[in-house]
Amino acid sequence: MKVIGLTGGIASGKSTVSELLRGYGFAVVDADVASRTAVAAGSDGLQEVIAVFGGEAVIDGEMNRPYIGQLVFNDPEKRAALNSIIHPRVREIMALEKRAALQNGRYVVMDIPLLYENKLEATVDEVWVVYVPEHLQLERLMKRNDMTQEAAAARIASQLAIEEKKARADVVIDNSGDLQTLEQHVKKAVEQFFERNEKK
C-alpha cells in the first residue's frame, strides 16, 4: 500500500485537505497531533522540556506553547534543543501509526508541515503539496492568526518557499479558490491516485 506525504505552507489549507482525504478512507497520520502527544501532560517528553526550558515551559500541566514558541522562534540553539526532544518521539509515534494502518491494508497520508524542511520526502512514496500563492498565504495567515503583516511574513519566511514546494511536488492541489473548488481538486487527485495504484 502506498504512503502519501501531504505538505504545504502555513495557512495553505493543508488541514482541510487532510480532512477531505480522511473522507475518502485514507488513514491520516498527523505530525502536529504526534508532536502534541510527544509532550503531553505527564509524558517523559514534557519532563525533558521542563529540564531544558524551566518551570515557565508548563502551564496547567501542559506545555506552554506560546512561551516556548517565542523562545525558539528567533533562537536557533533553543529551537535545536526543543527539536532534539520532540522529533525522535514524533518519528516513533508516526512510524507506529503508519505501520498499523498499512498492516490493515489502508493507504496512508503522512500529514507533515515541514516535510521538505526536515528532508523526509524519501520516507513516502509520493508528495502532495497544498498550494496557494504567497500573497494569498500572507493574507490568510494574517486573518487566521490575527497577525501583523510583518509577523505573518516572518512566519512564512521561516519555511521553504511555497513555489519551491510546488516545483518539487508529485501532485499539486491548488487551494487559491473557495472550498467547493478545493473539494473538486482533491476528488480529482484521489481518483488519479487510485487509477495509478489500483491497476498495479
Score class of each variant (00 low, 15 high):
residue 3 V to P: 00
residue 3 V to S: 03
residue 4 I to Y: 11
residue 5 G to C: 04
residue 5 G to Y: 02
residue 8 G to Q: 09
residue 10 I to L: 10
residue 12 S to W: 10
residue 14 K to E: 11
residue 15 S to F: 09
residue 15 S to P: 12
residue 16 T to N: 06
residue 16 T to G: 09
residue 17 V to T: 04
residue 18 S to G: 12
residue 23 G to H: 03
residue 23 G to A: 00
residue 24 Y to R: 02
residue 27 A to W: 07
residue 27 A to H: 12
residue 28 V to P: 07
residue 28 V to N: 10
residue 28 V to D: 06
residue 29 V to L: 11
residue 31 A to T: 11
residue 33 V to W: 15
residue 35 S to N: 14
residue 38 A to W: 14
residue 39 V to Q: 13
residue 40 A to Y: 02
residue 44 D to V: 04
residue 45 G to D: 08
residue 45 G to Q: 04
residue 48 E to D: 04
residue 48 E to V: 00
residue 50 I to E: 03
residue 50 I to V: 08
residue 50 I to A: 01
residue 51 A to N: 01
residue 52 V to A: 01
residue 52 V to P: 00
residue 55 G to D: 10
residue 55 G to H: 02
residue 56 E to T: 09
residue 56 E to W: 02
residue 57 A to C: 09
residue 57 A to H: 03
residue 57 A to K: 09
residue 58 V to Y: 07
residue 58 V to D: 10
residue 58 V to A: 11
residue 59 I to M: 13
residue 60 D to I: 05
residue 61 G to T: 12
residue 62 E to V: 13
residue 63 M to T: 14
residue 65 R to T: 13
residue 66 P to D: 15
residue 67 Y to E: 14
residue 69 G to W: 15
residue 71 L to A: 11
residue 72 V to E: 11
residue 72 V to K: 13
residue 75 D to S: 04
residue 77 E to M: 04
residue 78 K to Y: 04
residue 79 R to S: 04
residue 82 L to A: 06
residue 84 S to Y: 00
residue 87 H to I: 03
residue 88 P to W: 00
residue 89 R to P: 03
residue 94 M to P: 07
residue 95 A to F: 01
residue 97 E to Q: 15
residue 99 R to A: 14
residue 100 A to G: 13
residue 100 A to E: 15
residue 102 L to F: 11
residue 104 N to D: 15
residue 105 G to K: 13
residue 107 Y to D: 14
residue 108 V to Q: 12
residue 109 V to W: 11
residue 110 M to S: 13
residue 111 D to R: 14
residue 111 D to L: 11
residue 114 L to R: 10
residue 116 Y to V: 02
residue 116 Y to W: 09
residue 116 Y to Q: 05
residue 116 Y to A: 04
residue 118 N to L: 10
residue 122 A to M: 01
residue 122 A to I: 00
residue 122 A to R: 05
residue 123 T to D: 02
residue 126 E to G: 03
residue 127 V to L: 05
residue 127 V to C: 05
residue 128 W to E: 04
residue 128 W to K: 02
residue 131 Y to V: 01
residue 131 Y to A: 02
residue 134 E to W: 00
residue 134 E to P: 07
residue 135 H to V: 07
residue 136 L to K: 10
residue 136 L to T: 08
residue 139 E to L: 07
residue 139 E to T: 03
residue 140 R to T: 07
residue 140 R to W: 05
residue 145 N to A: 15
residue 146 D to L: 13
residue 147 M to E: 13
residue 150 E to G: 06
residue 150 E to C: 05
residue 151 A to R: 13
residue 151 A to Y: 07
residue 152 A to T: 11
residue 152 A to K: 11
residue 153 A to E: 12
residue 154 A to S: 12
residue 154 A to M: 09
residue 155 R to E: 14
residue 157 A to K: 08
residue 157 A to Q: 06
residue 158 S to C: 06
residue 159 Q to G: 02
residue 159 Q to M: 05
residue 159 Q to K: 03
residue 160 L to S: 04
residue 160 L to R: 05
residue 162 I to A: 08
residue 165 K to H: 05
residue 166 K to V: 08
residue 169 A to N: 10
residue 170 D to L: 06
residue 171 V to A: 12
residue 172 V to W: 09
residue 172 V to M: 06
residue 174 D to W: 05
residue 174 D to L: 06
residue 175 N to H: 07
residue 176 S to F: 03
residue 176 S to D: 06
residue 178 D to Q: 03
residue 179 L to F: 02
residue 183 E to S: 02
residue 183 E to P: 00
residue 186 V to D: 07
residue 188 K to G: 10
residue 188 K to R: 15
residue 189 A to G: 12
residue 193 F to N: 14
residue 193 F to L: 15
residue 195 E to F: 15
